[in-house]
Amino acid sequence: MAESVTVENLSFWFGKQQVLKDVSLSAQAREVTALIGPSGCGKTTLLRCINRLYRLYSGASITGKITVGTENVLDPHIDQVELRRRVGMIFQKPNPFPHLSIFENVAAGIRLHGLAQGREVAERVESCLKKVALWEEVKDRLDRPGTMLSIGQQQRLCLARTLAVEPRVFLMDEPCASLDPVSTMRIEELIRELHKEYTVIIVTHNMQQAARISQQTAFVLNGEVVEVGRTAEMFVRTRDERTEAYLTGKMG
């Protein structure tokens, strides 16, 4: 089910400003790839290229190639709706839909794509909520608004919402940035579960988090991928002095 993501020679401009410079990176299926680097270095933009979310804002131009599975994402004829179903995204700030109940938040994508009808919808919602370990906490109040949950629960609700449309790839943009330590741990546990079935690309500020959950780490600086390597090796012995400087806290 998981699909690998390959980025080749990707450059990205917003207006006249070049945000990404000739980025190449490969994220293996069933692995967690962490993107680390100082804020403003282009990590989030890289993530938003993969599901073409950058297209929502005018002024962007892009060159290079991004392959998800076997398909070139930047091909103008690509089925954007299908791409975004296959490549799910979790945002920095949990964004449950405030006008929908907990149940309907998870069902939103199912209904959008017509993935299930009638009772199947409820079964699917339940199984997604169970996967993110939220079912026991919310099963008695499924009709309450999603925004009444705690921030940590909201982020898990967003995970369930994304799981419900059966993605192959998860893009996560600092999913724990607005969470407390306990909620962060729960999300990290989930990520460790998720990568058995999905490809995960996660942007994080937190190097310990990258070390804890990822198999591969890429260090991004000023729009360039400075270094990519196995997480275990990279944190022990970096090859690039800029990565070294960042990891030891001299930069960032």
Partner: peptide, 10 residues
């Protein structure tokens, strides 16, 4: 964020 969340679902 809400618009993006919905777009991201496809």
């Amino acid at each position: 964020e809400l618009r993006e969340g919905m777009y991201a679902l496809g």
